[in-house]
Write a protein that binds this DNA or RNA. Structure first.
Lengths: 340, 340
DNA sequence: TTGCTAAATGTAAGCGCTTACATTACGCGC
DNA sequence: GCGCGTAATGTAAGCGCTTACATTTAGCAA
């Protein structure tokens, strides 16, 4: 298993072997139509025989474009972003653009590093999640004229290009459904709120809906939790330790909601008879667990697709505007009226 | 929101502004110690004022290295690979190496395209999942002297560098546990077997264990299914439609097993009283659903970490050898003796 | 101060590619 | 077969960076 790195074949090697000029090789590679068929065939054969692949650096240098778009997501371990990112990648691939994914672990500092790393790689555009970040980040991007899109969030200001949905409004709508079932004592398991405007907006949506019904979220009815099932289960248990016990738990996302159900089982409580649980995102898991989750359906694939198209358009110098993606509430078995 | 792309500042701009040569700028950027402090300060200021970031292409061209490692995984939507890949990324980041992730949708042709795309980007090393692929792929990689590692799979041949576990042995071990509970009529929901040696090895492990107990897997006791919960549920139902009904279902991974449990609920069957279900991988989901899954625990993070280190070593020209990662069986509530 | 050595800095070539412009070949009507 | 317009191909410059080698500067001993 020796891996002696041979000097890779260059376009000159191909040109020599195919008995054409480098320009012709380049043309064939980038747009075969610009070369006569017979010539193209010779080039093709040479490329194959040599195992030639164009040198990215050389190309980037000559074209001043990398056909690459970057994305910094909070996490790749979590299903929340995976589907949207996958859709984005597929859309970009149609235009022969590669997606570079980096993850920030929900950490502002790491996010900044990843942004710099991506920019240094000469990306043509950048996708970021949410809006909350130091103004200097935006200043940096604008100064470099680097197109960027903020996803999983929507806002009607004109400061940035958004593709997403208003987390607060969706959350408010969901809460309304819970209230309509007759719940008056509601708890919430939120994601970690620091540096996470989506998580905060989801809380504030709940607060608004409660306020409209002359209710509110007491401090000990709101627990922050990291995004995994175990933590969700624990948060659920502390919420249940209070008296009177909440009859419905609104979770910042489906992973936490699944965790809450897990916690309920561990306490011997039946969802939704003893307590209702609702989530947010409608990832696969939401409909796969029992009882299936009432949740906010987010059209992740559509959002990823839109993000890709926005970035593609911006790269081409076209004018774009923010895309609002509408969410819907899906009612499933985990939400029912409170027990009497 | 105008994104007029200004010509980015180059190293010459910085050199001019700092009143030094480009060589000095380059030296300062790559290793500040090689420049006098006062000079470095001038350069630093110039860099900041201009918002300069070195052009990746130029650098790659001059150094013939990109500090980038590529990985082609079958899917990023699925939790199976996410955790390992995340760990790999973290380890690479310690050495200032970026991980480029591409997904092949479990399709050989797409995988080949992605490999080429990554190679064209000048990656210094490549991670692939599983062993099954056209020999020409390996010929291509070896011909270019590109270090690569095959992960999620282990084999004692010396043809490649592996980091993973023997899927067949792990699967055989799991099956043994099922047999020990007294099951004699066993069904299996496998992943799609074509072009997927891991999925096939898991089936063959089951077969071996059954054969050792003088049992076997009849054709209609094995169903292939794509990796999502809904399909798993459907596969489960067809398995259950047979008579006599299997008393235990072995699933190719945890997602399918979760799907099987979902199917069971839909049929009104209780797991594990009416039927046992076991999975493979031990992703988060496995312990989060009810009943929690008996499954094969794969140390994904350790595997990702090892993969990163192997690739880093190979890049540095060091000799390496395959890493075997050991799996363990975790017994949880989804497996019980068959009903009488 | 002078002369020497080592450290700091500068000069310029070249990495592999694309593309504007220059040149050559092809195919067609006569 | 000739001449022409167009399509195909070739030539060579230059993209931004690193680095071997050349030159200058600083620091120090005498």
């Amino acid at each position: 298993m020796d891996h002696i790195r041979k000097p890779n074949p260059t376009i000159d090697d191909v040109a020599l072997k195919a008995n054409v000029s480098t320009a012709t090789v380049s043309r064939f590679l980038n747009d075969p139509k610009r070369v006569r068929e017979a010539t193209g065939l010779r080039v093709k054969r040479a490329v194959e025989e040599l195992g030639y692949a164009p040198h990215f650096g050389g190309r980037a240098l000559a074209m001043n474009s990398t056909d690459t778009i970057g994305a910094v997501v909070p996490t790749i371990e979590n299903a929340i972003f995976a589907r949207g990112i996958q859709a984005m990648q597929e859309r970009l691939a149609q235009d022969n653009v590669t997606l570079l994914i980096a993850s920030s672990n929900y950490d502002t500092k790491q996010e900044w590093q990843q942004i710099q790393a991506l920019v240094a790689r000469g990306i043509d555009g950048l996708l970021l999640i949410g809006k909350d970040r130091d103004p200097s980040v935006y200043a940096f991007l604008k100064n470099r004229g680097l197109p960027y899109v903020l996803a999983w969030v929507w806002n009607d200001d004109r400061d940035h290009t958004y593709v997403g949905f208003p987390n607060d409004a969706s959350s408010q709508e969901l809460t309304k459904r819970v209230l309509e079932k007759g719940h008056t004592n509601i708890g919430m398991i939120a994601g970690v709120l620091a540096d996470n405007d989506r998580a905060r907006a989801r809380v504030s949506g709940v607060r608004t809906a409660l306020a409209n019904a002359d209710l509110s979220l007491a401090p000990d009815q709101l627990i922050e939790s990291v995004y995994d099932m175990r933590s969700g289960a624990n948060a659920f248990k502390s919420l249940m330790a209070q008296s009177p016990r909440p009859t419905a738990i609104i979770c910042g996302n489906d992973v936490l909601a699944a965790g809450a159900q897990m916690g309920a089982r561990e306490l011997g409580l039946i969802v939704p008879d003893d307590v209702s649980v609702v989530g947010f995102d409608d990832i696969d898991l939401a409909s796969g667990i029992s009882p299936p989750l009432t949740t906010v359906h987010v059209p992740h694939r559509r959002m990823g697709n839109s993000a890709a198209e926005l970035l593609l358009d911006m790269r081409a110098g076209r004018q774009v505007s923010s895309q609002r993606i509408d969410t819907t509430i899906v009612m499933r078995g985990s939400l029912a009226p409170p027990a009497m």
